[in-house]
Design a protein around this nucleic acid. Structure first.
Ligand SMILES: [Mn+2]
Ligand SMILES: [Mn+2]
Ligand SMILES: [Zn+2]
Ligand SMILES: [Zn+2]
Lengths: 143, 143
DNA sequence: ATCCTTTATTTGACTGAGTCCATAAATTGA
DNA sequence: TCAATTTATGGACTCAGTCAAATAAAGGAT
């Protein structure tokens, strides 16, 4: 199931240049926006509509080939690291986003203190803070 | 520090009808949108601009009197339960949002598996799933 | 109570990120 | 190869929020 063409077929999706290019663009760099992905795609196949990018990202995420995260104050980000429910660490100053393994190990940490009768399918964790670079910069300006 | 007037003064903010009404509106119901809050405020004092509502919500959140959460696919939500870094459980179907105590107890769970050199100041946790009502409804429709 | 300065509110235009929809094109599989 | 189905395109449109200039209200000092 490594091959994207196989993957698309397997989910009953037609194989299109746009989808393949979007897939490659997402893999090339982690945590990128639809906008950035669209630019990447355009540099590969020579044109693609915004809507096609959103459609591809949407269906690929739905089928589980890519993952979408939607941090506060940022457009959605897409990545190809999938199926491990890892978490994210985001710099409030510059937006730098890095992966963090799930604190509870491999098993996704789905247990809430009290689930209030909900059936929980995902625990989304975002650690907010300041990245090393921005820390250094603010230390310098305070000096 | 219970009294909102005191609180505003204490933070060097002038006390305005709009701010007080926004504060009351936020307290009246948990997890409401700016839009809903604006309507509440309008039913109390007879008019308020959208911008004034956003301003008030912004400064009140900044000063720590209210808290803003920004779940994926929803406008920002505001609540007055503050200073305990509690988490949220959100229904993917109907958006119902409920509080969940921090899994790690009183101390906010700020520890990531690997902080990558970041200085973390908040761990935001959202549990996504289906609420009891929506579970029941879908069980019924499957029957 | 009055004036002055600071701070907040109003109004209305504007933006970013994404969605909707009708038409055109590509993909599939018979 | 030829429909039938699935996607892509282009353009209008929406939602949630921000910006900026003009006006109004609040707070402090007389
Ligand atoms: Mn990631
Ligand atoms: Mn809450
Ligand atoms: Zn940073
Ligand atoms: Zn529900």
């Amino acid at each position: 199931m490594k091959d994207p063409v196989q993957f698309l077929r397997h989910h009953g999706l037609s194989v299109t240049a746009q989808r393949l290019a979007v897939l490659r663009a997402v893999s090339r760099r982690s945590h990128s926006t639809a906008e950035v992905i669209a630019e990447e795609v355009r540099s590969e196949i020579n044109a693609v509509s915004r809507q096609a990018v959103y459609n591809a990202l949407g269906t690929l995420a739905e089928k589980g080939l890519i993952r979408r995260i939607q941090p506060a104050g940022s457009p959605a980000l897409y990545e190809d690291r999938v199926n491990d429910n890892h978490h994210h660490l985001i710099c409030r100053t510059c937006g730098k986003t890095v992966d963090v393994d799930c604190a509870k190990g491999r098993a996704p940490c789905l247990t809430a203190a009290d689930n209030a009768g909900f059936e929980i399918d995902e625990a989304e964790v975002i650690y907010w803070g300041t990245c090393p670079k921005c820390l250094a910069k603010s230390a310098r300006s305070r000096a």
